[in-house]
Simulated scan of single mutants.
Amino acid sequence: MRNPSQTEQCHYVDEPYQLHDCGLGDWLLSFQSPDCASELTRLFQHLKTDPTVLEPVVGYDSLLIRTDGTPTSHSLTSKIDGILKTSHREQISTQHHDIQVVYNGPDLEEVAELTKLTTEKIIEAHTAPLYTVRFLGFSPGFAYLDGLDPILHLPRRSTPRPKMAAGAVAIGAAHAGIYSIPSPGGWNWLGNTDHPLFNKNGLDATAFTLHPGDTLRFHPLAS
């Protein structure tokens, strides 16, 4: 019987990682460096089609691998190493999304004061980058987006709002995001989009519009 607290130290050629046995066929792969987004995306893309993997779930610097219980630490480590060593030569299957935004959020003026920028410059800084979906979390379909211009890196609001609207386009710390459903939230609310992010009738990952590794750009619309 496996020890659920077992941790295996693994040393992939570029990024060392750990593989933790969580019990019940679940494994948590964690990288020692936060600069691992491409590795996580490649693993996610490959493992989601593996017949022994029930579900891979991407985190900020980790991947929860839910299996049917058949993989051992040795076989799973060998599989992970094989993916990481060869998949960089493959084209990752991801999608690009263009998101239209009306920049009329209630925090736009406050962000302007904090950054010492005009609202026009904030919109320019927010729409310029090509963003990458790092992972989904917090609420169904909410994507944490890498790529935010450092000039817009701001702390979350000291007092969260009891309700952010579905489609609220916001920034928090080093990430941009879009609220997929109405929910409380403490990010800085810049604007709104009607781009659908979550289908409540979906029964699997197809319920979500955005997926790890996808790219997107924001485009301003007149209010």
Rank of each mutant, 00 (worst) to 15 (best):
N3E: 07
S5H: 15
H11E: 14
H11F: 15
Y12T: 12
V13G: 06
V13Q: 14
D14G: 07
D14C: 09
D14R: 13
Y17N: 04
D21R: 01
D21G: 03
D21L: 02
L24E: 13
L29T: 01
F31L: 12
Q32F: 05
Q32P: 03
C36E: 01
C36D: 02
S38M: 14
L40D: 03
T41C: 15
R42A: 13
L43Q: 09
Q45P: 02
L47T: 04
T49A: 15
T49F: 14
P51R: 07
T52F: 06
P56E: 06
G59P: 01
G59M: 02
G59I: 01
Y60R: 09
Y60S: 10
S62G: 11
L63P: 05
L64Q: 06
T67S: 12
S73R: 14
H74G: 11
H74M: 13
L76A: 00
I80Y: 05
I80D: 04
I80K: 05
D81Q: 14
G82Y: 13
I83S: 06
I83K: 05
K85I: 11
S87K: 06
E90Y: 10
S93T: 12
Q95G: 05
H97S: 08
H97F: 10
I99D: 00
I99S: 00
I99Y: 00
Q100G: 06
V101E: 08
V101C: 10
V102I: 10
Y103V: 05
L108F: 08
E113S: 13
E113A: 12
K116C: 15
L117G: 12
T119S: 15
T119A: 11
K121I: 06
A125Y: 01
H126D: 09
Y131V: 01
Y131K: 03
T132R: 15
T132L: 10
T132C: 14
V133C: 00
L136Q: 00
G137E: 10
G141F: 06
F142L: 13
L148T: 04
I151S: 14
I151M: 12
P160S: 11
P162V: 07
P162D: 04
P162W: 02
M164T: 03
A166L: 03
A168D: 13
V169M: 09
A170D: 01
W187C: 07
W189R: 07
W189F: 09
W189G: 02
G191N: 02
N192V: 07
T193L: 09
H195P: 00
N199S: 13
A205P: 12
A207Q: 04
L210P: 00
D214L: 11
A222V: 09
A222W: 04
A222G: 08
A222E: 09
